[in-house]
Design a binder for these strands. Structure first.
Lengths: 330, 330
DNA sequence: CTGTTAGCGCGTTCAC
DNA sequence: GTGAACGCGCTAACAG
């Protein structure tokens, strides 16, 4: 392991000068010395010990990313974008998965704080309760100069990359109504999950504005199996005059599609179906799913930028309605 | 930030004793003092500064994970398993994505080495060339006590979690032949990718052992679009008497399925199709895809254990043939 | 501009 | 069993 001191010695300069050339920022160093140091470092193959840098600086060149699950394509895409943005800045990413356990989320933030990561990006919506511990933990982090950004949902006035859940869902509702649908069902996910609620609310509000009856809302899990179960529940209760179903995210829609297929309900011939997010794997389902596209990777990257930079506190990301075969005109 | 010194002072003991109680390992401390220290730490809410620990110990409580892409369900599942195993040991995970760029892989290992991570898990197959830089980088890491494990493919005699690519593909070939198929095509992926090659080879060998003609092998990318393109190429060249296609991984199979659908080739009625890996999202495709199941999350966990522990150097993971609707009896 | 000198917080020999 | 002191590699005042 080549140390800074060896580099300094070989270049015939002090430790401080070598540090300034190779890692430091503010101070400038004369060209002659600078070059000597750079040559010495190159010759020796010097690589800074980031653990020592982290200790001395009080902050590591790392950004922490907290997601619900990596196997959920939504978070995987977000993570990819975040990692790309971090790499652009010479930072590495430390990832933790909560599996929607609030306690685990708090523990992860504490861990990342102990790691002295420079910034933490929290992705995924939270339920209304049990946010106090999380904000307390985040406050401790920020008190020591840590930066925080959120993806998906605002919290405690922190910077956030917020998808237009309400507007996107409303636009989707109008698009589906434009196809002639009048009676809708919404697979609404967990009622206490804000993202789910906002999408449901936006969809409902748009229908009302159009003078259409409110949708039947079925609660459930926010994942594939939740969509599957909610769709089954819908069929069990009887479709009646519902001609179109909106699942508040794509993985739920995929689950719903499977449930409908199992029950022999043809999509879109007997029932139209739409989701939200436009996860990458969607195009390979049959029928292709109508959805609201979110630039997921970009959102992950923006969140990293937002945490590190001093841009605006809130970045709203519009959603674009993408009509595909799963929704058909009546 | 509560430091160890504050804890020691409050407990009325020396820094060394506090360290031994809270983090140290070898030395034992008297019960009376031990309790005092633990109470003090709890009262103050002490959390060790991992950057300081890393510097003092020369190694961080972190394991590095290098994957090709997080949006590939195969690697996402692997990463989830690895993260779970790491968490069980009180370690956090630092992830990097190579996007199949060998240079990037080397750079990531260098970065992780600079982070003094305790272990590095390299997932994903490599091409035959340009491995010398990687092994050189890994040697440097191991020279300083770093531990390494691989998933998917052996390299330089390092510990590895190796799926039974040959045997799994061979078993699949026999199963498909058992359905009455005689002429096969293999969407073989990149010829220089060992995993792809082994699966192709195992499949081919099994056919030969059965006295069946060798398959038509079409090279291509190892991802969804690669499978899509290879399937198109197959159709362009004319299916002739081929009744069954084996794509050497599931995402390729999904791509192939899409291509076949676009060309109006019914699966499985006109053509049977099979993949490899059994990624989680597979069950929601139509038709459900026949494949060889690999316990991906478990493999990721095993790799972490393998890197950290001193178990056997090679763990072979068998693949289980899963016949689903995409392959039908003739 | 450049060098000297304290720390950063903790692990770990050494002595006691 | 316990404590004092040094060192991990680097950064950041402070002098010059």
């Amino acid at each position: 392991m080549v140390t800074l001191e060896e580099v300094a010695r070989r270049a015939g300069v002090s430790l401080a000068t070598a540090s300034r050339v190779l890692n430091g920022s503010t101070r400038r160093v004369g060209d002659a010395l600078r070059e000597r140091v750079e040559r010495a470092a190159a010759d020796l193959g010097y690589r800074p010990d980031v653990t020592a840098q982290a200790l001395a600086r009080g902050s590591a060149d790392v950004v922490g990313l907290v997601v619900h699950s990596l196997t959920d394509p939504y978070f995987a895409a977000l993570a990819e974008g975040a990692m790309a943005a971090a790499e652009r800045r010479g930072l590495t990413v430390m990832i933790g998965a909560t599996h929607r356990d609030p306690a685990r989320e708090v523990a992860l933030v504490a861990t990342l704080r102990a790691q002295r990561v420079r910034a933490i990006v929290l992705a995924g919506s939270r339920t209304a309760r049990s946010r106090s511990e999380l904000t307390a933990e985040l406050d401790l982090f920020r008190a020591k100069g840590g930066r925080v950004a959120l993806v998906g949902q605002e919290l405690a006035g922190l910077p956030v990359v917020a998808p237009a859940n309400r507007d996107g869902a409303a636009a989707l509702a109008r698009a589906l109504a434009g196809l002639g649908h009048r009676r809708f069902a919404v697979l609404g996910g967990p009622p206490d999950l804000l993202t789910a609620r906002h999408r449901t609310a936006g969809f409902t509000a748009a229908l009302r504005d159009l003078g259409l009856p409110g949708p039947r809302v079925l609660p459930g899990g926010f994942d594939r199996d939740g969509g599957h179960a909610a769709a089954r529940a819908l069929l069990d209760a009887g479709l009646r005059d519902v001609t179109c179903v909106f699942a508040v995210n794509d993985v739920m829609a995929v689950g719903a599609l499977a449930a409908l297929r199992e029950r022999g309900v043809a999509v879109p011939d007997e029932l139209s179906l739409a989701g939200f997010d436009d996860i990458a794997t969607l195009r390979d389902h049959v029928p292709a799913l109508t959805t609201v596209r979110l630039p997921l990777a970009e959102m992950g990257g923006r969140a990293v930028d937002l945490a590190l930079g001093d841009g605006p506190g809130v970045v709203t990301v519009p959603g674009e309605v993408v009509l595909r075969a799963s929704a058909r005109a009546l």
